[in-house]
Design a protein around this nucleic acid. Structure first.
Lengths: 235, 235
DNA sequence: TGTACATCAGTGAACGCGCGTTCACTGATGTAC
DNA sequence: TGTACATCAGTGAACGCGCGTTCACTGATGTAC
């Protein structure tokens, strides 16, 4: 797409960005359920009806915010992982870059983390456009492992029992997409690591470590290292 | 406390239960943010103002529901774990009972799971009474491991590196409460297992396995077994 | 047992609020000739 | 370059809605004597 030509088009883009920016701060402050067009308009000193020139109602705006959140998470994660790879560190260090980025992102934008991984907004269906960024995140997370495996650098410390045939079928979509020739056990390990990561970040972000884990950052780092060790990444 | 004596007291108790029951179905259907006294009253064919005889406003009712949710989860988990222990199965089987119960509970009451482990309701502080049941859940989950350790039945397959001193400090509250004389590494393992469990259940309950894990129940079972294996529970 | 009074569940009207969305309009920007 | 018309951002009033909460009340239940 070419750069916008007319002044009108430039202004329109700018106002759209402003609306999204204000909406994002409201989302961060009050949560998705309380997102209100009128209060956004108030902050922008516009009439509420003016927003309809930009977004066709509340749900459309919310969708835009959700897509933005997915994309932002994907970008931050990918960027951090690529930078670590470029730095040429160990497999473990490379692997840890993505989860670390996800955690930082979540701590900075807890409600958006909740929008992605928390309870869904009732009566609201996540838009199709979220699938692609979601896949980007998982891919960034797993690439260090698949790469290490492909290059024969994965030393399995704790040999897993052979996965049952049913498990192979159950995990077929992920395996085909991310790790077509790899062993099912590693795919399963990767998904477990994914779930563990979501859990540990959610517990911290949603405030459930209170009086339990006094140093969430340290615990997080240690958990990552353990997981890396279990799958046999070079430390 | 003695049984209620007067008819008035009996009726009051019954109506209170009815209100909570209706409120719980609304919570399950619409989520916490949309919980409305008027719509509960409508379902009960009462005037909205009548509810104020039982609960001093919306927030108080919501608190009661949240406490109920915590208690219900704690009871179901404890019961399942105790039953498995009584059955005298292997350590692994005993251990798996609690997570299984948590998963069933979560699938049956997804919004209440979200209330406990999902994004917090904005501007709402979880009541103090939730602490006790929360501890009951974690205790039920960990008892099989601490017991196996105390009785010398824990064979550590993958010896963890010694935990740094900072980690020992960070985990002191949990360790003191649940495992006073045990090694820090096992406490850390237990908390990781806890986080992983919350993650895997949340991903399933909130609908994030779609197109990824085709058989969440199987994946869940397998994850539990892997975790048990890693800590060295007798299979 | 019977009566007078107190307690309390529940009613129904009313309050003020913020919400999403519609609509006829104004006036500025852009376009065709 | 100048004019006539089309496009479109933004206004402000209005709509109907559901909400939490208050309050004066009615009538049934419970209690003291």
């Amino acid at each position: 797409m070419a750069a916008p030509r007319t002044a009108r088009e430039r202004v329109r883009e700018e106002v759209t960005r402003e609306i999204l920016a204000v909406a994002r701060t409201h989302l961060a402050r009050d949560g998705a359920a309380a997102l209100s067009l009128r209060s956004i308009a108030r902050d922008l000193e516009m009439a509420p009806s003016a927003l309809y020139r930009y977004f066709d109602g509340r749900d459309v705006l919310l969708s835009a915010l959700i897509i933005e959140a997915y994309v932002s998470l994907a970008e931050q994660t990918e960027k951090a992982s690529a930078a670590a790879r470029a730095r040429g560190e160990t497999d473990t260090a490379w692997w840890m870059a993505a989860p670390r980025a996800m955690r930082s992102w979540a701590l900075a934008r807890p409600y958006e983390w909740g929008l992605i991984f928390g309870s869904p907004v009732p009566g609201y269906q996540a838009p199709e456009e979220t699938v692609a960024p979601y896949v980007r995140v998982t891919t960034a997370l797993l690439r260090p492992v698949t790469t290490a495996y492909a290059q024969g650098r994965l030393q399995v410390v704790l040999a897993p029992p052979p996965a049952p045939a049913a498990m192979e079928a159950a995990l077929a979509p992920v395996r085909d997409a991310l790790f077509p020739d790899g062993p099912v056990a590693i795919v399963q390990w990767a998904l477990s690591a994914w779930a563990a990561l979501i859990g540990v970040v959610s517990l911290e972000v949603f405030g459930h470590w209170r009086n339990t884990v006094l140093d969430p950052a340290l615990f997080f780092e240690q958990s990552l290292r353990d997981v890396a060790r279990q799958v046999g990444l070079a430390p």
